[in-house]
Design a protein around this nucleic acid. Sequence first.
DNA 1: AAGGGATGCAACCGCGTTCGC
DNA 2: GGCGAACGCGGTTGCATCCCT
Length: 292
Amino acid sequence: MNVKGEEDHEEMMKMEELRRGPWTVEEDFSLINYISLHGEGRWNSLARAAGLKRTGKSCRLRWLNYLRPDVRRGNITLEEQLLILELHSRWGNSWSKIAQHLPGRTDNEIKNYWRTRVQKHAKQLKCDVNSKKFKDTMRYLWMPRLAERIQAHSSATIVSNIANITESASTALNYNTNTTHNITESPQVTIPQAQATSNTICSSSNATSFSSDSPISDFAHDYPNHGTDDFQAHIDTDHLGFIESLISPSGYYHQDLNFQAMEQNTEWMSGDLADNLWNVEDIWSLQQQFNY
DNA sequence: AAGGGATGCAACCGCGTTCGC
DNA sequence: GGCGAACGCGGTTGCATCCCT
């Protein structure tokens, strides 16, 4: 065996010692314990020092996506869904960038959400997730509906509080539905202008007439930490301003869409969020009104 | 009850970037 | 400035679980 061969063999031996696949409780404990004592970083040496037969990469991933104390687990909330849609429309698949604006959520989690939920619906609609058709469907149907539901769920608590804040903040931010404004340090939440000149912004005639029967428990489920400092802290004022802007009559419903008829005709706005927001048949029939 | 497809998510991989020597 | 190691990101895979027949 030549020198190169020996090196390869040694590398293989090292590889054989390394564990892969799901982490055990013992491994998790070792990693948490080590990081709590010595901090994170230098992942390869950390893995060795902690006695873990894992690559540094694997340790880093396990820590960031699962073991970190501030990782927020559980269902993606309405608000988070709305934010993901908006930020994705702005930045595309920059998951880590998007994740920075969803406290406690990891890029991996957001990526998985996008792939399993959003792309699934694009597939069902037989259109590309990056197509104008799909983006418009998101923008003019899904996002306003999410915003409506968020307000319906939280009108007595969060949004009313935030609305006050937003109102005062909007002055400082020179916020209105036709401008952009800052979210934390960088995202510019653009309030869409309904296809520029060809489609004008219009109001929904009965935008607040639904979802009021949604059980309050939904809210408790979606916002398990609401009311806590932590939760309040993660509600960015500007995010809520953005949500408010999506809600008619100041929102940006497509003028050609007959939402009143749709709401009378479907049940897709009530019940479980994720499924009912995307009643494919309803959306598809509405899409015909886009005159593509 | 079983088995096969669908789904969701944790984990891995490859590659580009950053850092430190 | 060059080089290797470490880091971070987006894409992909593998597997456990769920659901339907």
